[in-house]
């Protein structure tokens, strides 16, 4: 932000309060990608962007992470695929997607025309699958980064095999990094005892950044019929219910790795996003809230701007700006291993 942008017309400028004069910067660089603001829409909750074009101004978003793409199209799981729970929802979609080539042909041209950053979530069943998908996507123009999904809980032998094992995480990340022509983020699973081990493994494999976290494996049962509510039996829990756990994981991981973190889990308003940022996230993703409130992401941008103005800080100054008590009773960084 240059100083002339802060200047107001001479008349009446002196009557303005200091709060009105401060114009905070919201832009941020994550893994070498410059975002106009730190609010992204999460994979699987925003389609390929176009679906929201008539409801919100997509150019005001920091970034769009598109639905997980595999080398080949995927049909997904049988119905029922979703179920609402207290302050959350279970989903087991099964990574239904159009496949990498069709994405490049049919979906990417629209996204490329936006000012908003475009990140592509990538998944596969084997290291070769991930590599092949990235190689196909490398041919497309207008993709700003890849987000490696090694954490989907809903496919038979899917990403989570990688997400639970530090050795496999490092292997798939380094294989992907070797071929990726764009920055590589890795989306981690929260369904682990110590997420910092997986975070370090991804860092060692060459990840440029981390997305924390994917959904928590959950389950709901219809007691009348004694059947699971979702056909896949277990499903991924998202929404406000998971936020405190995910914030804790961002807090722990921020202290364990050097690479930047994008925080995600139950963010529905600016205050939620700011919790993640203060815990250590450089940017955030809005997920489930897009389903019931298409305007949520842009209101979060404005809410963060208001907060920054009120506290007279630029967004980047808030990252990891947690004020810990003098003598924390039990350091959370050691929680998982005790």
């Amino acid at each position: 932000m240059t100083s002339n942008q802060k200047k107001t017309p001479a008349t009446g400028a002196e009557t303005q309060s200091p709060e009105e004069e401060f114009i905070p910067r919201l832009d941020v660089t994550v893994a070498g990608i410059h975002f106009q603001n730190p609010v992204l829409t999460a994979s699987g909750t925003f389609g390929y962007g176009q679906e929201f074009a008539h409801l919100i101004d997509l150019n005001q978003l920091g970034g769009i992470v598109v639905k997980g793409i595999s080398a080949e199209p995927m049909p997904g799981n049988p119905s029922p695929r979703i179920y609402e729970t207290e302050s959350g929802m279970l989903n087991a979609i099964g990574l239904q997607n159009v496949g990498a080539r069709k994405f490049l042909e049919e979906k990417l041209p629209f996204l490329r025309a936006l000012r908003t950053r475009c990140l592509v979530n990538v998944f596969g069943y084997s290291t070769e699958d991930y590599v092949r998908c990235i190689e196909i996507l490398n041919e497309g123009e207008g993709i700003d980064a890849y987000e490696l999904n090694i954490s989907c809980p809903n496919t038979r032998c899917g990403g989570m095999v990688y997400g639970n094992d530090p050795r496999l995480t490092e292997e798939v990340v380094s294989a992907s990094k070797r071929v990726a022509r764009r920055p590589l983020l890795v989306k981690l699973s929260p369904n682990v005892t110590d997420i910092t081990l997986l975070a370090r493994a991804a860092e060692n494999g060459g990840a440029d950044g981390l997305t924390l976290v994917n959904t928590f494996v959950g389950m709901a049962i219809d007691v009348e019929t004694r059947a699971p509510r979702v056909s896949n039996v277990t499903a991924g829990l998202s929404g406000p219910a998971i936020k405190p756990v995910a914030v804790r994981m961002v807090y722990q991981t921020y202290r364990a790795v050097q690479i930047p973190i994008i925080g995600i889990g139950g963010i529905a308003k600016a205050e939620d996003a700011l919790e993640y940022v203060i815990a250590g996230a450089r940017a955030v993703q809005v997920g489930t809230a897009n389903f019931y409130d298409p305007g949520a992401s842009l209101r979060i941008v404005e809410g963060i701007r208001d907060y920054c103005r009120r506290h007279r800080v630029h967004f980047a100054d808030l990252i990891g700006a947690l004020r810990l008590p003098d003598h924390p009773a039990a350091p959370a960084t050691e929680y998982a291993s005790t």
């Binding site: 699987g44 909750t45 925003f46 679906e51 029922p80 897009n290 389903f291």
Partner: peptide, 17 residues
């Protein structure tokens, strides 16, 4: 009819065969 998450075609929760 089916359970729906969004109604906008992005959650893929309502897909039928």
């Amino acid at each position: 009819e089916n359970r729906m998450g969004c109604g906008l075609g992005v959650c893929l929760g309502c897909s039928i065969r």
